[in-house]
Design a protein around this nucleic acid. Structure first.
Length: 898
RNA sequence: GGACGGCUAGCUCAGUUGGUUAGAGCGCUGCGUUCACAUCGCAGAGGUCACAGGUUCGAGUCCUGUGCCGUCCACCA
């Protein structure tokens, strides 16, 4: 067939290249999409791509931290979300995907702090707040630009006209409004709490910023004083200067009699009032079973103190030294003070035991300094407070209810439990942070006055709260702050984007922030709008390296998305991330895997190239009026219809990997290896049109997975419209065709032909017959229909690498000696004149052994009366049929061995 | 300490409600370059589904227990 010149989309006449080179097309294609405006659903409505009243399908992109460029985990997130968005856009939904980035307060501040320390040898305090923040904003500008570029590289069809940043002006206004509303409602309050304090960095740390270091420590067992009845144990005697209670387990008979009593004692020279309290969290078996309660310097003790209304005595100050008012200890650092206290105890004969134990020391993840838990004034969100606007339910209750009632579904389902466990144990949420970069707290002070409002108060002498808000406060508002809240929410009514796109349909994010982020979003949305933020939460796993290790810069095992995109193409990277893993599970990725999908993209390219060059005239002719349909035509259309059905079902149920594998199997197996090969030998008037239909729908099905190569091919096919906004394949046309073929009654015939071809190839290969050698082939069959079937498909059978020189079809003849033998059910095949007797014998023996094994297993099954009586009739019938056909084949093979 | 996940071919992983001889990709073995593709084609080898019980006519799949690996949470005074 002569090679034709194909018009490429840019108008230049040229031949399609032999292999697909992503770099030649990807950027151009993305530009086309972006310029078209169809990433924006409003433009789609305007141009009739989707109906005005079409269902909305909204995803807000989990905003990547601007601390660094994107890694493969982000790529995975983008691939999944883009798949969903493209699928729904093609289905005709008003698909909106909102882009943005996260200021990631603490993380960003730390990165910049480290950077200036390294580059200029300065701390943030050296620079001062204003200069330091300028440095941060410079940094943000750079990384943000990189992130946005990378996101486009992934092919993400985000609506850039709605781009947001968690710390831009609209979001700042939203945060202020939220804070003030919550404050007015009494949900936000100021209170004291133990925070993780790093005495070196002079800052609080979030719980997840604390690291634990295994170490050996000394556990001291002692009495406060000789007149105190209970012995306690501690690794930190110096903090005991601030003890206000001793806690024991309420079931502990040793101490029951003391519970409720107060002892006034002198501990190492300092007078203390100690109350004996009962708390079921005290482990009777650890140490002496009694715990000295130091409310100011232990999270757990603080909680006990609150419950029991105990006084709080601060022992250690912000520099990690003993506070004033502790006599000789004041001003000493904790280690010195510890030695002094222990010495005192020894002198007074109060120290009973000193032993080495293993324990976990909390240290600052930045500098490794031991953390001091200290009480400090912070802002909180009350999660248990009943709120009027929530029908007297608390934020916690609303968030739990949403999951329990199934308003919010989790994928995979097991994360529902994790979400609920976390929610049920949630304490008030501390939202203030002692850092500079972040949302300012809309609170002003003037001597003893306090003002909370969206704008600074009038008058002189007011100063703003120096703290900033936890980054999750603003990202918790992400689903609605990006859709125009609060402007779009007046008098309790949604308007604009908020009315059109909220609640969103899917929140797709990593399972590691289920608790940190997802839970907060639910509470914030319930408070602000009285509705859930999203209907489904799809959780993906982590992207790990080949050996299952986390990718990290320090280990140097990370794969840079841009590098692999340059090497293998975006589509290949996307497929490698989408296929071969399941929701909520981690996935390993390495270059060989990506290379495999690069090969696949090329395969699809070549399939298309073949169809386009050979059937060019009919390629855009998408019509289901075929004049004549052969067995294989019916089969491929049947397979295609099943594929469309299954893919839709898979995508609706978030089985992306399965959908991808199925598509791959059809494309490479059914279409390339069988149907296209058939087309080379079987000519009929419908072929071009069938191929046109198949390729059209196949490209559409693949588009959400591999947007670039599919769009490129689509454009090569001289389509005026973008594949991006094509309608997703429907079943209508296929249904008609199928009705005409009695819903697939041709299927067994098709399988028979396939089996005959495979059997011949196999027999030749095992006998080491050179592929080029043509052999006379004789086929026996008692069944008249089969004979006709084979006769009708002779050209095709001969064409498909069976190396037949002459094909003879007989009813039944004598066994042909010295020939290669194969059997397919009733059909016997002899390949004459190329037998390798030893190999042939071996092969038949192997097949006999194989058959005998399955036959005996099946016979036993059918002998079992209970199986026959209790199993469904269908299953039993199937087993019987199988057995019969195996037995027939076995007999024939045995005949050959004689 | 608590919760969750994994354990299926040499490697990476699928396996939807229990029911053909348990699948795929990569890798491996043999053969193959004439007209879509060597980023390819054809054929093949390779698994007692971690282990032990149980339910069932029937278990990779459901239940109980054990082991190993991993993750998250809580952290011991």
């Amino acid at each position: 067939m002569e090679e034709k010149n194909i018009k490429i989309s840019n108008g230049v006449n040229k031949e399609l290249p032999k292999s697909y080179n992503p770099q030649d097309f990807e950027d151009k294609i993305y530009e086309m999409w972006e310029k078209s405006g169809y990433f924006n659903p409003d433009i789609c409505v305007r141009d009739g791509v989707c109906a005005k009243n079409a269902k909305a399908f909204t995803i807000v992109l989990p905003p990547p931290n601007i601390t660094d460029k994107l890694h493969l985990g982000h790529s995975s997130m983008l691939a999944i979300e883009d798949l969903l968005i493209r699928y729904h856009r093609m289905k005709g939904d008003r698909a909106l995907w909102v882009p943005g980035t996260d200021h990631a307060a603490i993380a960003t501040q730390n990165v910049v702090e480290r950077k200036i320390l390294k580059e200029e040898g300065k701390t943030r305090h050296d620079l001062g707040k204003e200069k330091f923040l300028k440095k941060v904003w410079d940094f943000v500008g750079v990384t943000q630009a990189t992130i946005l570029k990378q996101t486009r590289k992934m092919g993400a069809s985000l609506d850039w006209s709605r781009q947001a940043f968690t710390l831009d002006e609209p979001r700042k206004a939203a945060v202020r409004k939220m804070f003030v509303d919550m404050y007015k409602e009494g949900v936000i309050y100021q209170g004291e709490r133990i925070v993780n304090w790093c005495p070196r960095c002079h800052s609080t740390l979030a719980d997840d910023e604390v690291e634990y270091k295994e170490q050996k420590a000394k556990l001291y067992t002692f009495k406060y004083s000789s007149d105190f009845p209970i012995t306690i144990a501690t690794t930190r005697p110096e903090t005991k200067l601030g003890d206000t209670a001793v806690a024991v387990n309420p079931k502990d008979d040793r101490y029951k009699k003391y519970v409720g009593k107060i002892f006034e004692i002198n501990f190492a020279g300092i007078p203390l009032k100690i109350k004996i309290i009962a708390d079921r969290n005290v482990d009777m078996k650890f140490g002496t079973g009694a715990l000295g309660v130091t409310p100011a310097h232990s999270m757990v003790d603080w909680q006990m103190a609150e419950k029991n209304k105990l006084p709080v005595i601060k022992v250690i100050n912000e520099d990690g030294k003993i506070h004033d008012g502790f006599g000789e200890y004041s001003g000493k650092d904790v280690l010195t003070a510890r030695k002094m206290v222990v010495k005192k105890l020894e002198e007074n004969g109060l120290l009973e035991k000193e032993e080495e134990i293993e324990n976990n020391l909390s240290v600052c993840y930045r500098c490794g300094t031991a953390i001091e838990p200290l009480p400090s004034k912070q802002w909180f969100i009350a999660v248990d407070k009943k709120i009027k606007r929530l029908n007297n339910k608390s934020l916690k209750e609303k968030a739990i209810e949403a999951a329990k009632k199934g308003k919010i579904k989790f994928i995979p389902e097991r994360f529902t439990k994790k979400y609920l466990d976390w929610m049920e144990n949630l304490h008030d949420w501390c939202i203030s942070r002692q850092i500079w970069f972040g949302h300012e707290i809309p609170v002003w002070y003037k001597e003893k006055e306090i003002y909370v409002g969206e704008k600074a108060p009038e008058g002189i002498g007011w100063y703003q709260d120096p703290d900033t808000l936890d980054t999750w406060f603003s990202s918790g508002m992400w689903t609605f702050s990006t859709l125009g809240w609060p402007d779009n929410f007046q008098k309790g009514k949604k308007a604009g984007d908020l009315a059109d796109y909220h609640p969103t349909q899917v929140l797709e994010t990593g399972y590691e922030i289920l608790t940190l982020w997802v839970s907060r979003m639910v509470m914030m949305s319930e408070f602000a709008l009285g509705e859930i933020p999203f209907e489904n939460v799809y959780l993906h796993g982590m992207v790990l390296d080949e050996h299952g290790k986390k990718m990290s810069k320090s280990k140097g095992n990370g794969i840079d998305p841009i590098e692999v995109i340059d090497k293998f193409g975006t589509d290949a990277v996307r497929l490698a991330l989408l296929i071969g893993n399941t929701p909520g599970n981690d996935t390993r990725i390495f270059e060989e895997k990506i290379a495999g999908y690069r090969n696949f993209a090329n395969k699809l390219w070549n399939i298309s190239r073949y169809i386009i060059t050979n059937y060019e005239l009919r390629i855009t002719n998408y019509k289901f009026d075929f004049k004549d349909l052969t067995l294989f035509d019916k089969w491929i259309l049947f397979q295609m219809r099943n594929l469309i059905m299954a893919t839709r079902d898979d995508l609706e149920n978030y089985r992306f990997s399965q959908a991808g594998e199925r598509l791959r199997e059809f494309t490479w197996g059914d279409l390339a290896d069988w149907y296209l090969e058939v087309c080379k030998f079987e000519k009929n008037s419908s072929k071009g049109q069938i191929l046109s239909v198949i390729l059209n729908d196949l490209l559409k099905l693949w588009h959400p997975f591999m947007p670039f190569v599919t769009e490129t091919i689509w454009q090569e096919m001289e389509n005026k419209k973008l594949l991006l906004i094509e309608k997703y394949p429907e079943l209508d046309g296929y249904k008609e065709i199928l009705a005409k073929t009695n819903n697939g009654d041709f299927y067994p015939e098709m399988l028979l032909i396939q089996k005959i071809i495979t059997a011949i190839r196999n027999a030749r290969s095992e006998n080491k017959v050179e592929p080029a050698k043509k052999i006379k082939t004789v086929v026996y069959s008692k069944i008249e229909e089969y004979k006709k079937l084979i006769k009708d498909h002779e050209i095709m059978i001969r064409g498909l690498k069976t190396g037949i020189s002459e094909l003879e079809i007989k009813v039944k003849g004598e066994k042909i000696a010295g020939a290669i033998y194969a059997v397919v059910g009733d059909i016997e095949i002899y390949l004459i004149g190329a037998v390798d007797k030893e190999k042939e014998k071996e092969r038949i023996k192997k097949e006999i052994a194989n058959l005998e094994k399955v036959i005996s297993a099946t016979e036993n099954k059918l002998k079992n009366k209970e199986f026959v009586s209790k199993a469904p009739k269908e299953i039993v019938k199937k087993e019987k049929e199988k057995l019969a056909s195996w037995q027939e084949a076995l007999e024939k093979l045995k005949e050959q061995m004689k």
